Amino acid sequence: MSTPTPVTALARRWRLEVNMGTESTPDWQLCPAITEFQWEAPPNLEDSGTYDDDGWDGNTKTGQGWSVTATFNRKISKDSTVYHPVHEKIRATAFGWGPDSEIPIRWMDRDGLPEAYEGSALVEWAPSGGNKNDLDQVEVTFTGNGPLAQITNPLAA
């Protein structure tokens, strides 16, 4: 029996969801129309080397942050009277203060593979603008406020 040839995963495998409910009664909904998605969780490393290390560097992880940057096409109703509710929740959060400036998000592999994450984030909202033929796009940066949890992928079989 031969080993199957592995296939390279695609960047579009990510699905971003926003909690439109509350912490006690979550209502996770898709953030639609994403055209670009990037996340990172860089550690904070501090030099912990000493004279006793014979000149070799020592490093200690002392913290970690995380962020997600997503660009999406802005969606409106067919009668052009309202924006998509998830997009509006994100936009409104970007202009909030205190607890109103954070939004719970999660993202996962849309094919059900094990990679999935959840956390609470502050929002930066940056419309792209453009010329008369461009789509209305927004770049949103979610900056983690607190831990990024590795979760069981809700789309897993």
Rank of each mutant, 00 (worst) to 15 (best):
T25Q: 02
D57H: 10
E36L: 10
A70Q: 06
D54N: 09
S24L: 12
T50P: 14
D57I: 11
H87F: 02
Q38C: 09
V18W: 03
A9Y: 13
D57S: 14
L16K: 02
D57Y: 12
V18K: 04
A33L: 08
W39V: 01
P43F: 08
V86G: 00
T60G: 11
F37E: 03
R15H: 12
G55L: 09
K61Q: 14
G63Y: 00
H87S: 01
F37S: 06
T25D: 10
A41S: 13
Q64Y: 02
V7F: 12
T60H: 09
W28A: 04
N59T: 15
Q64L: 01
L16Y: 06
F37G: 07
R74N: 01
Q38H: 14
L16G: 04
T71P: 02
V86P: 02
E88D: 05
K75P: 05
K78C: 11
T22N: 05
P42M: 00
A70S: 08
R15Q: 11
V7H: 09
T50R: 15
T8H: 10
A41Y: 11
S67N: 04
N19L: 10
C31P: 03
Q29G: 00
K61M: 13
Y51L: 14
N73Q: 11
A9M: 13
H87A: 01
F72A: 06
N73Y: 07
G55S: 02
S24A: 12
K78Q: 15
S67D: 03
N59P: 11
T62S: 05
P26K: 01
V82Y: 10
N44E: 15
F37C: 03
Q38K: 15
Q64S: 06
F37W: 08
E23T: 09
E46R: 11
Y83A: 15
E40T: 07
G55H: 06
N44R: 14
S80D: 15
G63I: 01
W28F: 04
T35R: 02
P26L: 02
N73P: 02
H84Q: 05
H84A: 01
N19A: 06
V7D: 09
K78D: 15
R91S: 00
Q29R: 07
F37M: 04
V7W: 10
Y83P: 11
G65H: 00
H87N: 01
R91T: 00
N19I: 05
E46D: 13
Q64E: 12
I90H: 06
T8N: 11
Q38E: 12
R13L: 04
A33T: 04
G65C: 00
K89I: 07
R12F: 10
A11Y: 14
R74W: 07
G49I: 07
S80L: 15
R74F: 07
V68K: 05
L45F: 07
D79A: 15
